[in-house]
Design a protein around this nucleic acid. Structure first.
Length: 551
RNA sequence: GGCCCCGUGGUCAAGCGGUUAAGACAUCGCCCUUUCACGGCGGAGACAUGGGUUCGAUUCCCGUCGGGGUCACCA
């Protein structure tokens, strides 16, 4: 009885690993092409950090003409969630970070290196586990979960390093014959890796992001195949990324400390290890402490949040790129028109430690991104958002022609207007432009300098009766307001007023403010000439009438 | 607690032995302007700390302090 017999009893039907090695050959890509992936668990929640990782992975693959694939890590059946895969696929689609290979819907995939869902790869893992057992590099362990807890408790009270290693690895030296008997007797077991490592030896690892990191060797006999026959993350990672011919493993830095284990696994399996790039997480300030963005505590941790808020995917991506490579901002300013696809991301420029998430900065990016959109695109995007989250806005947008006029105000100038940072602001932003809403609701009229009601009413009347002409160009239009100001005893020029404040009641700017407030009930608006053009004379008259009647 | 990583303005961050220590967001002031936004100009604001090494340390080494990660039949 030897290891071979043991292996055969445990995995009688497993194919030899040569079968898989042939089935998934080296990829034929150009020199330097990066093959990388996003490998989430389908927990029903897509974290912004996951999106961040995929963005980086996707860009790298694209830049090097490599491959970016999506692999679903569903080996923990307890955490399985209905439609978890679709959630991930759709999120990537929303952000245009589509994989070249891998899952493309809940149950469909594309690419030659699949299946891309780990639960479907059970027999592959078993083949490799069998291979290790045959070589005496893995063994069945009959310790129960309770045994494990007990061991851990002892180690804790003795204040020694916890884990299944050295003298604590009770099943490591069970003779083959005995192990076979136990299995035949129907005892439950898991498969553990027989680690050749020694804790007192160091290994050197060069991480593409973190740089040189030294670790003690791994000496833990970790579980590679669980009692349910599925692999643990560590084993699945090594087998999959070998078979899928991954060149770069880009993942969260919570994995950094398992690098010694992974490297050892690659080595014992006879595989070439990929390069690792461990990304620092996106953090949040919590009462002076930094912590990862939390699924439970922070709404902004969920990718869905940005959709709900109406923050454009482009803005989120640009912000994320900003965190990834801080030179992105300079590039963006120098290349305002270019697509972010043209920006060359560099892994070695990524920060080693986690950045605090900055919503204000994100919104600023959003503002800039939206300012570059055409009125048409602003319309389409806000309508799309409104249909999903704001019925009232959707109704307002029904008159597309009118909405387009509003969104067109000061848009497309060399210095475009930047007043929308997310779609959820649109309603507030354009609401006053709708007569049915504006006229039928009580409005406040926060007139500023000019406060005398009779003067105000006179300005409004005079303006309509004597000065306003829809066909005036902007210069003429403003000249007329100056005329009006003059007629009413206000300075025609602000400078003139400032020079001789005693000669006038106020100045043309204050008169403009009266018109603006009467028109919109706001002191701050985009260009009033354009607003009047959009509103039209009839609406202007009605609004003035309403203002005159207001208290 | 063991192991690993990190510590430049409020935030994101350049710089990596000699710099007036970039830039962006935020903030303040001014200018532009009929308002706001945009834009322009300017201000305030930082090398955690103590020892070394060095002619010279933000940059190199050690300690301290602070922060983060990790120690599962979860990923």
């Amino acid at each position: 009885m030897d290891y071979k017999d043991l292996a055969d009893i445990i995995f009688p039907d497993a194919k030899p690993i040569e079968y898989y090695e042939e089935k998934y050959p080296e990829r034929n890509l150009k020199e330097g092409a990066i093959v990388t992936r996003f490998a989430p668990s389908p927990t029903g929640f897509v974290h912004i950090g996951g999106l961040y990782q995929s963005l980086i992975a996707k860009k790298l693959a694209e830049q090097t003409e490599g491959v970016f694939f999506l692999r679903v890590e569903d080996t923990d059946q307890k955490r399985e969630v209905e439609n978890g895969v679709s959630g991930i696929v759709n999120a990537l689609k929303d952000f245009e970070i589509q994989p070249d290979e891998g899952m493309i819907s809940e149950n469909e995939e594309k690419g030659k290196y699949g299946p891309y869902k780990q639960s479907l790869r059970k027999e592959i893992y078993q083949s490799y586990a069998k291979y290790l057992i045959e070589q005496g590099k893995a063994y069945p362990c009959f310790c129960t979960v309770e045994d494990g807890e007990e061991m851990r408790a002892k180690q804790e009270t003795a204040k020694i390093r916890p884990g299944y290693y050295g003298v604590w690895a009770k099943c490591r030296n069970i003779p083959v014959i005995e192990a076979i008997e136990k299995i035949k007797a129907g005892e439950d077991y898991v498969i553990r890796f027989k680690s050749p490592g020694r804790e007192d030896r160091k290994i050197k690892h060069h991480d593409v992001i973190k740089g040189n990191v030294d670790f003690p060797e791994n000496d833990q006999d970790i579980v590679i195949i669980k009692a349910d026959g599925l692999p643990t993350y560590h084993f699945a990672h090594v087998v999959d990324d070998h078979l899928m011919r991954t060149t770069h493993v880009i993942r969260g830095d919570e994995w950094l400390s398992s690098v010694p284990l992974h490297l050892q696994l690659f080595h014992e399996l006879g595989f070439k290890a990929p390069k690792y790039a461990h990304i620092a997480p996106i953090m949040k300030n919590d009462n002076g402490n930094k912590r990862k963005l939390s699924k439970r505590k922070d709404a902004e941790a969920a990718v869905s949040y940005y959709d709900e808020e109406g923050i454009p995917a482009e803005a989120v991506k640009e912000y994320l790129l900003n965190i990834a490579n801080s030179n992105f901002e300079n590039w963006r300013r120098a290349n305002k028109e270019k697509s972010i696809d043209e920006f060359e991301l560099q892994l070695n420029k990524m920060s080693v430690s986690g950045a605090l998430f900055d919503m204000i900065k994100l919104l600023d990016v959003g503002k800039t991104v939206i300012s570059t959109f055409s009125a048409e695109k602003v319309y389409d995007e806000s309508l799309k958002w409104a249909n999903k989250y704001d019925k009232e806005l959707a109704e307002m947008l029904e008159d597309k022609e009118y909405a387009l006029k509003i969104f067109g105000i000061e848009r497309g100038n060399k210095k475009p207007r930047k007043d929308i940072s997310k779609w959820s602001e649109v309603k507030e932003n354009i609401g006053y432009m709708y007569d049915d809403k504006f006229l039928n609701k009580k409005q406040d009229y926060p007139y500023q300098v000019i406060n005398d009601k009779s003067d105000i009413n006179k300005i409004l009347d005079l303006y309509i009766e004597k000065y306003y002409n829809e066909n005036d160009d902007k210069q003429t239009w403003f000249d007329k307001i100056k005329e009006l100001a003059g007629e009413m005893g206000y300075a025609k020029e602000v400078k003139e007023y400032k020079a001789n404040p005693d000669n006038y009641k106020a100045h043309v700017g204050d008169v403009s403010t009266v018109l603006r407030v009467a028109l919109t009930s706001r002191t701050n608006t985009p260009d009033m000439y354009e607003i009047m053009q959009v509103l039209g004379k009839e609406s202007i008259e009605k609004r003035f009438e309403k203002a005159k009647k207001a208290e």
